[in-house]
């Protein structure tokens, strides 16, 4: 049959669900091994964060779509969590290979890293379903859950979300072409506008780089 937009969207959803069917709701044995290799084991904080963000996501989803859809929000969040653990494992494997390191204590105890990675995973799920937002599952096309909605839900700075996108795409080879285009669109939205909003961490980074440049340009004192 010719590929209609709805059929294409449905196949993307089915593909996502198929990929995530084999993923787990909790960290895999390989992830647990990485956690155990850390100077400070991040496992408890990771599980606590996933649980607390689920409550927040479910509440915001229900507020946006309708109280009757809270369970749908919970299901979407759970798919996002599976993708989050799956991508985290893939990222750590590639970083281990690239850096010949097994102790990722600093990265795995970084709250912003985990919140950004989980937000990206949930955004992939939301965008996949969003393309097929129809009356059938109760979410109306008018409810705009599209990016950057997830940033507000997780109270996440756009530039921190931006930092995980490329590594996320590299770590998840089964992302569809449409999804990669969507994430690229998110990048452009962030770089062209969201990252320049007041309070963005980008301004601090620019300030630090300017300070480094000015220090590098200062002549050395004669004693040196």
């Amino acid at each position: 049959h010719p590929q209609t937009p709805v059929r294409a969207a449905m196949s993307n959803i089915q593909q996502l669900i198929m990929i995530l069917n084999s993923a787990t709701d909790t960290p895999s044995d390989i992830l647990i091994t990485y956690f155990n290799n850390c100077t400070v084991n991040p496992k408890d904080s990771i599980l606590k964060r996933v649980e607390s963000l689920e409550h927040i996501f479910k509440k915001k989803f229900a507020e946006a779509v309708g109280q009757g859809c809270a369970e749908i929000g919970s299901q979407r969040y759970k798919l996002g969590v599976r993708l989050y653990y799956r991508v985290m494992e893939s990222m750590l494997k590639s970083e281990e290979e690239r850096l010949s390191v097994q102790n990722f204590s600093k990265l795995l105890n970084d709250n912003i890293f985990h919140t950004s990675l989980l937000a990206c995973a949930v955004e992939v799920v939301m965008a996949t379903y969003g393309r097929n937002a129809s009356q059938s599952d109760g979410t109306s096309a008018e409810t705009d859950l599209s990016f950057p909605w997830i940033l507000n839900v997780f109270d996440l700075k756009a530039f921190d979300f931006y930092k995980v996108i490329e590594s996320f795409i590299k770590a998840e080879p089964s992302l569809t072409r449409e999804m990669i285009k969507h994430l690229q669109h998110c990048e452009h939205q962030i770089l062209e506008s969201l990252a320049w909003q007041s309070g963005s961490p980008l301004f601090e980074l620019i300030k630090q780089s300017k300070e480094r440049e000015s220090q590098a340009e200062q002549p050395e004192p004669p004693s040196a």
Binding site: M91, E95, F104, L107, D110, S167, K170, R177, I180, Q184
Partner: peptide
Amino acid sequence: AQDYHFGLEEGEGISELFDCD
């Protein structure tokens, strides 16, 4: 992913982006 413009250098990854190198 061919359409995606990868910007990280060879020696860069998620660890550098979160200052964990």
